[in-house]
Design a protein around this nucleic acid. Structure first.
Length: 453
DNA sequence: ATAATGTTTCCTGTTT
DNA sequence: GAAACAGGAAACATTA
């Protein structure tokens, strides 16, 4: 919050309501300041995010400026966006609220939360306009001259470069007439490759004192490089975001199926699918699904109430005779869950195993590929893999098979009554096409390699 | 926000 | 008797 000691531009992450509350609180604190909340153009976050995720991400950024003090301050946190030379003291009287995703790149590393909006997202318009409305002369017409705002410098046209230049120098409080814009009718990539001396050389104006021109050139040069640095920072923050995504991390679990390799939306079970290396990921740590604090002792995992071999102990058997658990899943027995963008269904999971030589035929194999019949070689291993993928170490084949049986209804899976541990993909099941079921060809090729080498 | 769908965790009973 | 199977019930998670 603004304090009496220094001038501040304050950026906070908050909901719109919270931002309004803060504004009101600030108004009470500082009666000399008039603040305003401007409405902003709301826009939905990308559809790729789940509803819950969208709600979570729909927070706002509030920018509060204490205009009771002089604007320019070298120590203010937004130095990246403020000129390095003293500008004309534009009056800052706005309190603007806009989407978080817009401002996180505008204000660089001010937020630890990564941005998810692309550079050209319309929210930027708001954010940029907020910024510009705060620091530029209000008289400047900015009808269709804002294209440069939505482009990276490299993509600027000559007009964009000039528009940026006009905006920049006016931001710094200089008069348009003091700048020889005609010298800067160059494309963005050319502008960015200019050295400081080049900018100065082009900035020389017959009617303007050379010292002033030098100062303007320095400022323009620094502004340009601030923007270029911001572009780099923004790109690296996107990369960091991708790297930090727990569901893209390769370092948290031993072996799971890549959830993103299959489009959950397109779960028609008829679409073409060819497995590749990306369908399986190798991870290194499986310790993240430990004790569930929300699990009551009554509903603890089977391992708690049964022996380690799965058999019931005598005491537990007696207790069970006295107290019969009501049918159904106990309330609150849900394990610790992790939000994930999408998941693989049980039939898809089975199909993926069957089409992967790491698991087929060692733990699951085709019984009759032409009919889609397959057999569990090590049912518990398959269930464990499934549990591992779902970060549920309590998964058993019993539970897993129950999930499978639910797919009988839609004919995604079909039971094979005559044989145990044999199931079949139904006509609505996933595509399991392969010309090498159980990887027999690969094995025989390998064998011949060994024989003849 | 909500409905639909999918999954998990129980259970009872049956079959192999 | 054990393991697998079938499916009801309810809670929970995810997706549309």
């Amino acid at each position: 919050m603004p304090n009496s000691g220094m001038n501040r531009v304050i950026l906070i992450s908050a909901t719109h309501v919270a931002a309004t509350i803060i504004r009101n609180a600030f108004c009470k604190q500082n009666s000399t300041t008039t603040l305003r909340v401007d409405s902003h153009k709301a826009r939905s976050p990308p559809a790729a995010h789940s509803a819950a995720s969208r709600r979570q991400r729909c927070t706002y950024v509030a920018t509060m400026i204490d205009y009771a003090r002089p604007l320019y301050d070298q120590n203010m946190p937004c130095e990246l966006y403020f000129p390095s030379t003293s500008p004309a003291p534009a009056r800052l009287d706005d309190f603007q609220v806009f989407k978080k995703g817009t401002a996180s790149h505008i204000y660089g590393n001010y937020y630890s939360t990564p941005t998810y909006d692309s550079y050209a997202e319309p929210e930027i318009d708001n954010a940029m306009n907020v910024y510009h409305s705060l620091v530029t002369c209000r008289e400047y017409p900015r009808d269709n001259r804002d294209d440069w705002k939505y482009k990276v410098v490299d993509a600027w046209t000559e007009d964009d470069t000039v528009s940026w230049m006009i905006d920049t120098v006016q931001c710094m409080g200089y008069c348009e007439n003091e700048i020889p814009f005609y010298n800067f009718r160059v494309k963005g990539f050319e502008m960015r490759s200019m050295k400081r001396e080049d900018v100065l050389h082009r900035m020389v104006h017959p009617n303007i004192d050379q010292n002033i021109s030098r100062r303007i050139a320095d400022s323009v040069f620094e502004k340009l490089h601030s923007r270029l640095n911001e572009e780099i920072l923004r790109q690296s923050s996107i990369i960091r975001y991708a790297e930090c995504d727990p569901y893209h991390s390769h370092e948290s679990v031993n072996t799971v199926l890549d959830l993103d390799s299959l489009d959950h939306k397109n779960r028609s079970y008829g679409s073409d699918y060819t497995p590749n290396d990306s369908t399986l990921l190798h991870q290194t740590d499986s310790s993240d699904d430990q004790e569930d604090p929300f699990r009551s002792s009554e509903t603890a995992s089977p391992e708690c109430s049964y022996g380690s071999d799965g058999s019931k102990s005598g005491d537990e058997e007696d207790k069970r005779k006295i107290f019969k658990r009501p049918p159904g899943r106990p309330k609150g027995s849900g394990r610790k869950t992790f939000k994930r963008p999408r998941s693989v269904s049980v039939p898809e999971f089975l199909r993926n195993l069957l089409l992967d030589s790491k698991y087929c035929p060692s733990i699951i194999k085709w019984e009759d590929h032409s009919q889609g019949k397959f057999r569990f070689v090590k049912p518990d291993e398959v269930a464990k893999l499934w549990g591992h993928m779902k970060q549920n170490e309590n998964m058993t084949f019993e539970k897993f098979s129950r999930a499978m049986r639910y797919h009988y209804r839609q004919a995604v899976l079909v039971s094979v009554p005559t044989a145990r541990l044999v199931y079949q993909f139904g006509h609505k099941g996933p595509d399991f096409k392969t010309d090498n079921p159980n990887f027999v060809k690969v094995k025989s090729e390998n064998l011949s390699d060994i024989t003849y080498s």
